[in-house]
Design a protein around this nucleic acid. Structure first.
Length: 418
RNA sequence: GUGAGUGUAGCUCAAUUGGUUAGAGUACCUGACUGUGGCUCAGGAUGUUGUGGGUUCAAUUCCCAUCACUCACCCCA
């Protein structure tokens, strides 16, 4: 293989047909589903002032400390390619003084500087929703249900839903202290990372996969044990509504999530068929974030789902379907004018039409049509023009018959329906 | 950022213990079929063996470096 002069940057992906079409399809499915629940699309910049992410995700979170694509522009502004969606949405909602409550969804590329592997890319596709100004536990359950519905509509069936509650301003400090004391007593057993976490964010120790840490944390005080009455009731209502909706779930006490802004409900969707990167998506409540951005006290909840991983977990597309495309084939140059006219008419009638202007022989044109996966060919030759017909050939069945000039659109439409 | 594995034709892969013109399938092109794709048959074209160095009479094969990809750690989508 001769060396290509230009290759794509590490961790980025090209989507060529039909992969690009499969991806679009999944996005369309999500848009439709989200709109079904009353969400409307929000489009925000792909980069923001770095402070937007640092303030919301947490100064010490891994995303902020080592995974951001940050740069200075020509005026020395500190900018960052968005590593996640929520902070930008919250910023935009406040900046545009959107009326609360409001339900927003988004679709787009996100960027994190981490080493690529299966299901993890430096540029990746994410879809998400944010329900701002809604405090009810029923909203939590509906949001969790919506994420699950998206995966199911893509044909993903091995997806399990995990939920947890990490409490609020009232009950978190109590738990934090209890957990910190518990961990300090067992500091010797913990890995280096976790020893640092004791001070910075003890909750994250629950996330650690090191076996020693897992054991040490076995009997640790869980967030759930320390929930205040209000949080406890909220969580119970979330679970009750999930049950009501017949959505199977697992309560996972170790599910704490990596972003600082979460409170109360957290959840995550896990797939068994993805390898190490098994999280299809996740989210949670972030009742304090809007206020921290300088806005009014506003409860909120949302999720982000990984498009790349969803497509990885979804069953492969069905067999090679023919495209709704008519290929117009010409015999000699004297039919070229007629060929262009027919193609124009078909397109005006809403039928995608293509012509191979370069291939001189009919055989080569048919090969092009086949390679393009066209559903049919329309042949224009001297004989046809003399008789006032086109020859219409179905490329799947191989059948061919003559169609009067003015009946061609209807005849092709019929082919597409079959 | 750390570790391991893999780089041979457009694609998927071969090539005995290092041994001289690096093969096969598929895709591609041509013809059988000068108005017809897919099937069949016959023929044809294709590689600086990722790159750079080293060992050797001889390197796709062994060694070093480098780059790329993959998987895992980490982190999470």
């Amino acid at each position: 293989m001769s060396e290509l002069k230009q290759t794509r940057p590490k961790g980025t992906q090209d989507f060529v047909p039909p992969d690009s079409e499969r991806r679009r399809q999944a996005e369309a499915t999500f848009r439709h589903l989200a709109e079904t629940y009353g969400y409307r699309e929000i489009i925000t910049p792909t980069f923001e002032h770095t402070a937007v992410f640092v303030k919301s995700s947490g100064e010490t979170s891994d995303i902020v400390t080592k995974e951001m694509y940050s740069f200075k522009d020509r005026a020395e502004r500190d900018l960052t390619l968005r590593p996640e969606g929520t902070p930008g949405v919250v910023r935009a909602v406040l900046e545009n003084q959107a009326r609360m409550p409001c339900r927003l969804y988004y679709v787009g590329p996100y960027f994190r500087y981490s080493r690529p592997q299966k299901g993890r890319y430096r540029e990746f596709g994410q879809v998400g929703v944010e329900a701002l100004g809604e405090a009810s536990p029923l909203t939590d359950a509906e949001v969790i249900f919506l994420g699950d519905a998206f995966f199911r509509s893509l044909g993903i069936h091995d997806c399990t839903t995990q939920v947890n509650s990490i409490g609020c301003r009232e009950c978190r400090p109590g738990h934090r202290d209890a957990l910190r004391n518990y961990l300090l007593e067992r500091k010797e057993q913990l890995c280096g990372d976790c020893r640092l976490r004791i001070d910075r964010n003890p909750l994250r120790v629950f996330d650690c996969k090191v076996e020693a840490c897992r054991q040490a944390v076995e009997g640790a005080p869980t967030p759930r044990q320390h929930l205040c009455e209000a949080c406890k009731r909220h969580f119970e209502q979330v679970l009750a509504d999930l049950t009501q909706r017949s959505l199977p779930y697992e309560v996972n006490d170790r599910l704490v999530r990596g972003l600082d802004y979460y409170n109360r409900t957290t959840f995550e969707y896990i797939s068994a068929s993805l390898g190490a990167q098994d999280s299809l998506g996740g989210g949670g409540r972030y009742d304090y974030l809007v206020e921290e951005f300088g806005g009014p006290d506003t409860p909120a909840i949302g999720f982000a789902l990984g498009l790349d991983r969803a497509l990885l977990a979804a069953p492969p597309a069905a067999g090679p379907a023919r495209r709704h495309l008519a290929f117009v084939v010409w015999l000699t140059e004297s039919e070229l004018g007629e060929t262009e006219k027919l193609a124009a008419k078909l397109r005006a009638d809403g039928i995608p039409a293509q012509v191979d202007y370069d291939a001189r022989r009919v055989k080569a044109q048919f090969k092009s049509a086949d390679a393009a996966q066209a559903a049919c060919c329309i042949i224009i030759g001297p004989d046809e023009l003399a008789k006032g017909v086109y020859s219409l050939k179905d490329l799947v069945s191989g059948e061919q018959h003559e169609v009067p000039f003015d009946a061609i659109t209807a005849a092709v439409r019929k082919r597409f329906r079959d």
